[in-house]
């Protein structure tokens, strides 16, 4: 099991706030394998976006990486720590090797410049020898791939395009340097269902064509089932469960994952029986002792409030809980 492309190794990230430091991510470890698609799920504020953006180095000013490494394995086999790279070295890796798309990428383009400048800028920043013609013809190919009309898109201003068009243009842009790792922060929020579906299908197609690895963050478990190979659940800055997508949906082990799954409305369940996890997320400035989920957990006992559970792994999956949910074999 040593063919990972990205490895978070015991990463802790905190934010400076007026009340003290807020531990957004604490001791998170996570591997992303070559060619794998990993879904990061969890409530808002659980640190998944912080963890993902830390790789590309655009954390807010108030954030600080307290410990840990984000190891990236380059195509030549060299391993670098994304947190410790010199600015220029890192700049050259970004977009060439690792790309990231934000949530609501509607505003990812410079509003006062035409779209084609974005393509040209990006390629020239990494390979000044490429001329405009090469870049534009490559952009055209990619735009066609995402089913857009290149002539129209390239010479438009961002505000002249619809949300879905911008999203697809951005998708084309991510592929222009054929990166090896794609990080997506809620790639389809704020899009209507049909556009969402289109984007998801495109992502799957492109993954087949270019063979990149992928980490994506989402709230929407239906996207997880369409896009992910593996699901990683985060809660209050910690990785609490990691499981192959099939196992995750079939039989989540961590009570929190279980709660998330039970909170999905199903056509077969009457609406008044819809489950929601009681309580709220803990205060991350002064986190309580023990398992952070314990106060909201139906399975917690006295030990959970005292001691923090270590991650246990078994058969390709891992969870951090003293009283995991029993394994199920079929969907009930």
């Amino acid at each position: 099991m040593d063919n990972w492309i990205l490895r978070f190794d015991d990463v802790s990230i905190s934010y400076r706030t007026k009340r003290g430091s807020l531990h957004a991510v604490s001791h998170a470890s996570l591997d992303v394998m070559e060619g794998e698609s990993v879904a990061l799920i969890g409530e808002s504020g659980c640190g998944k976006t912080t963890l993902a953006t830390s790789v590309v180095g655009i954390l807010p000013l108030a954030a600080r990486i307290d410990s840990g490494r984000a190891l990236y394995r380059k195509s030549d086999g060299d391993v670098v720590d994304m947190y410790a790279l010199a600015r220029n070295e890192k700049r050259l890796l970004l977009w060439k090797d690792v790309v990231m798309m934000f949530q609501a990428s509607q505003s990812s383009f410079n509003p006062v410049r035409r779209i084609f400048t974005t393509f040209v800028d990006t390629v020239k920043a990494h390979d000044p020898s490429k001329n405009d013609e090469w870049i534009l013809s490559r952009s055209r190919e990619l735009l066609k791939m995402v089913m857009l009309d290149p002539d129209k898109i390239l010479y438009s201003y961002p505000h002249e395009l619809s949300g879905g068009m911008k999203q697809r243009t951005l998708l084309a842009l991510t592929m222009i340097l054929e990166p090896r790792l794609l990080i997506l922060d809620e790639p389809t929020t704020a899009l209507d269902l049909i556009t969402q579906e289109k984007i998801l299908r495109l992502l799957n197609d492109m993954r087949r064509t270019f063979g990149f690895s992928m980490v994506f963050i989402t709230h929407d478990l239906s996207i997880v089932s369409e896009l992910a190979d593996r699901v990683v659940t985060m809660y209050a800055g910690k990785v609490v469960e990691s499981a192959p997508v099939r196992d995750f949906f079939l039989s989540p082990r961590h009570p929190y994952s279980d709660g998330l799954l039970r909170a999905i409305p199903r056509l077969s369940t009457p609406s008044d029986e819809l489950y929601s996890i009681p309580g709220t997320t803990p205060d991350l400035v002064a986190p309580p002792a023990g398992c952070l989920f314990a106060p909201r957990c139906g399975r917690a006992d006295e030990r959970c409030g005292r001691q923090e559970p270590e991650s246990e792994s078994c058969g390709g999956r891992a969870w951090a809980c003293f009283h995991p949910v029993e394994e199920k074999n079929a969907i009930d």
Binding site: M100, Q106, N110, T117, D121
Partner: peptide
């Protein structure tokens, strides 16, 4: 987002400052 993405796109700092931050 467009400035953040510009950083992620690996653009040179000077390009970002002039064409992305400055103008807007």
């Amino acid at each position: 987002d467009y400035v953040q993405i510009a950083k992620v796109r690996g653009l040179r700092q000077s390009t970002i400052l002039v064409n992305y931050v400055g103008r807007n």
